[in-house]
Amino acid sequence: MFNALLLEELGKETKASVQRLNENQLTTGDVLVKVDYSSLNYKDAMAITGKGKIVRQWPMVPGIDFAGTVLASDHPNHQVGDEVILTGWGVGEKYWGGIAEKACVKGEWLVPLPGTMSAKRAMAIGTAGLTAMLSFMALERAGIKPDQGPILVTGATGGVGSIAVRLLAKAGFEVHAETGRRQHCDWLRQLGASEVIDRAEFDKEPAALESQRWAGAIDAVGGRTLSRILSQTKMNGAVTACGLAGGVALNTTVMPFILRGVQLLGIDSVYASTATRIEAWQRLQDSLPLDFEEQSEVYTLEQSIQAAHDLLAGKLKGRLLIQP
């Protein structure tokens, strides 16, 4: 038996409650993991509150990522006692996820904890940190360097944005952070942002081309914000798209691409290859402060339901951990 946050479909509503479940209900994969920490991501919050069409199978244990210790394994790459991380692969959407004391998943979805990284540190980084690093690596591959000008990070108080600000600042970039939460300006500057920009500045229909401002950007918002960023990106700049908090539609023109050579780079953290994940996790281990995990809020299974509502209401910032 184990405790888990279970989501059930009741008509058009989603019921979220902590329940005691049997291990024989875990039928997805070939590796059983004791979950030490999970985290609360934007996608998890939408699933728990029922505000987004995230859940594909009912009932569902949410949690798109977790870190823990292997309890049993029929997979050749994982032995009892191994410490592992899971992010993505449809877990928490199509398959039971990590906001629980135990999870059973396919071995090929797991990667080992790098070096001396703890499970708590891994989930303080989590899917958000992995996405931020994949975006950072994409900007590197596009040839974007610190001497080319400022990098914009949108949704900067969120998990992806806040870690992206840290990574870029440490690498020597001038980071401009966009947020609708002006009360967190000082915190963003502490993370390394040299300038904080109000979200309202991007809530306008863009012209086909605007004044060149950004050497690159990491955009976790999408929608009109992404359209405006593209119109303001410098010659041969690059923008990564890794979120949709501002909507899925993209109303833009070809002008930034054919007149300025701007690159729009899609970031997929859900199905990234194992080799890419291992490289990204190692770089995250080396790039973030040693006390990074201590700056995250930790919630119990019971507290995760209210935390999901607070996250969508814009009341929380940074990374949110779940300790089952």
Rank of each mutant, 00 (worst) to 15 (best):
M1N: 08
F2V: 07
G11C: 11
T14F: 04
A16H: 03
L21W: 08
L26S: 01
T28D: 09
G29Q: 00
K34Q: 15
D36V: 07
Y37W: 14
Y42E: 07
T49A: 10
G50M: 08
K51C: 08
G52Y: 13
Q57G: 01
Q57S: 14
P59G: 05
M60F: 12
P62W: 04
I64K: 11
V70Y: 09
V80A: 07
I85L: 13
T87P: 00
K102D: 01
A103M: 02
V105Q: 00
P112I: 00
T116F: 06
M117S: 07
G129R: 02
A132I: 06
A132E: 01
K145Q: 13
D147M: 08
Q148W: 03
G155V: 10
A156G: 06
A156C: 09
T157G: 07
G159A: 13
G159Y: 11
G161E: 06
G161Y: 10
A171F: 06
E174M: 11
H176Q: 02
H176L: 06
E178V: 15
W187E: 00
L188P: 05
G192M: 14
G192I: 14
S194P: 00
A215R: 09
I218D: 01
G222V: 05
G222S: 04
T225E: 00
R228V: 11
R228I: 12
R228W: 04
I229P: 06
L230T: 02
Q232Y: 00
M235W: 12
G237K: 08
A241P: 04
G243Q: 02
L244S: 12
A245S: 15
P256A: 04
L264M: 14
L264I: 14
L264Q: 09
A275Y: 05
T276C: 09
R277I: 02
E279V: 13
S287F: 07
P289S: 11
L290V: 13
L290K: 15
S296L: 06
S296C: 15
L301C: 07
S304T: 15
Q306F: 00
A308S: 15
H309N: 01
L311R: 00
L312R: 10
K317V: 06
L321C: 04
I322R: 03
P324S: 12
